[in-house]
Simulated assay, not measured.
Amino acid sequence: MDADLARFLRDELGHAPEGDAAGPWTVRGPVWLWQGSDGAPAKGSWYFLTIDGETAQAIRAQAVNAAAWGSVYVEATIGGTTWRTSLFPSKQVGGWLLPLKAAVRKAEKLAEGQVIDAVLALT
């Protein structure tokens, strides 16, 4: 990690993230289904993987090309499926949400609650 970046992250975050701050990053977590304010999933609701902790901080530090709503472009890989998408910022989790489109869920046989690994690289 660049010494100036490490110093900045220590000053801003209280520590510098471990590992390769420039990515790619491997994240693990459960697949979850977005639910509306009534607590029920709407027809066509999206599935997500949450990216939080040090990985979220490293992505935030490296993301220089923010898109709409503060999202960042990434290339994501789950199993044998790789696609380009955006991570959406989430104040609730203090990190990012990776949307898992139907084609990816079908190809990789992903289900709600299943713990998965994803590899993310900024594009």
Rank of each mutant, 00 (worst) to 15 (best):
D2G: 03
A3C: 03
A3G: 05
A6Q: 10
A6W: 02
A6L: 03
R7Q: 13
F8Q: 01
R10I: 04
D11W: 03
E12P: 00
L13P: 01
G14Y: 14
A16E: 11
A16D: 12
A21S: 07
A21F: 12
A22Q: 10
P24E: 10
P24L: 10
W25I: 12
W25P: 13
W25N: 00
T26L: 10
V27P: 00
R28W: 01
G29P: 02
P30I: 00
V31E: 12
V31G: 05
W32N: 01
L33R: 11
L33Q: 08
L33M: 05
L33V: 00
W34P: 00
Q35H: 11
G36I: 14
S37F: 03
G39N: 05
G39D: 01
A40E: 15
A42L: 08
K43V: 08
G44S: 09
S45I: 03
W46R: 06
T50C: 05
T50S: 14
T50P: 08
D52R: 15
G53W: 06
E54G: 15
T55A: 07
T55G: 06
A56W: 08
Q57K: 15
Q57Y: 06
Q57L: 15
A58N: 11
V64Y: 03
N65C: 01
N65E: 10
A67H: 12
A68N: 05
A68D: 15
W69M: 12
S71T: 15
S71V: 10
V72Y: 12
Y73C: 02
V74Q: 02
T77G: 09
I78N: 09
G79V: 14
G80K: 14
T81C: 13
T81D: 04
T82A: 13
W83E: 11
L87G: 04
L87W: 01
F88D: 04
F88H: 01
S90M: 04
S90L: 03
K91P: 11
Q92G: 02
Q92A: 14
V93N: 08
G94E: 11
G94D: 08
G94S: 13
G94P: 11
L98V: 02
L98A: 03
P99W: 10
P99G: 13
L100P: 09
A102S: 14
A103P: 02
V104M: 11
V104W: 06
A107V: 09
E108D: 09
K109F: 12
L110T: 06
A111V: 09
E112G: 08
G113S: 10
Q114P: 01
I116E: 09
D117I: 06
D117S: 15
A118V: 11
A118K: 03
V119E: 15
L120D: 06
L120I: 04
A121H: 10
L122Y: 10
L122P: 00
T123Q: 14
T123M: 13
